[in-house]
């Protein structure tokens, strides 16, 4: 016999089971006409995270990406499973340092651009140790 793993624990942080009171609380009388139309509650995790195993949350420090609406203290949703495309905002590792920037891929040339005029763009040369750590898919900004 071969066993199938039924559940592998996922890093789903906020998932809750919502027990609906609808069906449970109709001991007598006319049943709710809405009961048949009940749908699942909206789950932000599902909305924001496509690949739970590959998705990490990262906290922003500094204002280099302020033009893209990314502020100091914001939360980034980062998906490592995605291939970085031109103009994506990515978490990159440059010579061992991690940074959040917009990536420009033109032919074989890669440039990391800030979204703040106080910062210069950085072209990635052959000698630079460079890796895209993950692609930023959402920013969560508290008001």
């Amino acid at each position: 016999m071969i066993t199938k793993v039924k559940t592998v624990h996922s890093p789903d942080l906020s998932a809750r089971h919502y027990q609906s009171l609808f069906e449970a609380m109709v001991p007598a009388g006319f049943p709710s006409p809405a009961a048949d139309y009940q749908e699942d509650k909206l789950d932000l995790n599902k909305h924001l995270i496509r690949h739970p195993a590959a998705t990490f949350f990262v906290r922003v420090v500094g204002d280099s990406m302020i033009g893209a609406g990314i502020h100091c203290g914001d939360l980034l949703v980062v998906d490592r499973s995605l291939e970085p495309r031109n103009k994506n905002i990515v978490i990159a590792v440059v010579d061992g340092e991690m940074t959040v920037k917009r990536i420009r891929i033109h032919k074989k040339k890669i440039t990391l651009e800030a979204e703040n005029e106080n910062y210069c763009a950085r072209e990635i040369s052959e000698e630079t140790q460079f890796e895209v750590w993950g692609v930023v898919t959402s920013v969560i900004h508290k008001l």
Partner: peptide
Amino acid sequence: ADMSSRVMQTLSDFTPDIEI
């Protein structure tokens, strides 16, 4: 523990039969 569960979850995309 969290990284382990991520690795196992990724592996379970490759076969329905997995033993952790």
